[in-house]
Amino acid sequence: MEMKTNSGQQGIGCLFVATCRRECLLSFRRKSDLVNPLIFFLMVATLFPLGVSPDPGFLAQLAPGVVWVAALLATLLSMDALFRSDYEDGSLEQLLLSPQPLFIVVLAKVVTHWMMTGLALTLMAPLLGMMLFLPAEGVPGLMLSLLLGTPTLSLVGAIGAALTVGLKKGGVLISLLVLPLYIPVLIFGSSAVQAAVTGLPLGGYLALLGALLALALVLAPLAISAALRISISS
């Protein structure tokens, strides 16, 4: 049995890129998964003027919170699919039995997932801001806060997805597990937008969101890996 030895560093980088590539391919070939969260995002934002009041002044007050809640729910909605198809077709088993660090693959999957949802939501946010009469000063704050906040949502959501991947009815359960954990991001995110609207400095809020992201980036992949191993072993 010959065994090739390749430098570990290079292997890990390749694996990260290969996983990102594969996930992108998968997303682009199943376009509905890609677009559905964005449509959901738009629809939730439409419900508020209809359900509360179309008054511009009132909506402008509501806008930071509404856009953030809608982004949060849209991310949550897309989380369940993150590991489910891999679980159902057996790819997850291959993944767990790979000698490569699971941490890297998991991180690559979440990063790609974020680019398909969080980043797209961030780019779409100005449109929602306009629909809800968010003052123009608030838009940069909205986008910056979403840019820093949505990766944390994806990372934390992936823990929930990994814990429920073995269950048939994971969808509702995952919201139950993950929503309370989303609260700090929501608070800091929507406060950042409010600060931007009133012309207060943003730095502090963005720093807090960045700190949460750093923490999630370090700890969440560990929790996700552990959760996947647990879920698959039943």
Binding site: R22, L25, L26, R29, R30, S85, E88, D89, G90, S91, E93, Q94
Partner: peptide
């Protein structure tokens, strides 16, 4: 399960 992705 074969571990084969249908869309790839």
């Amino acid at each position: 399960q074969a571990g084969v992705k249908a869309v790839l």
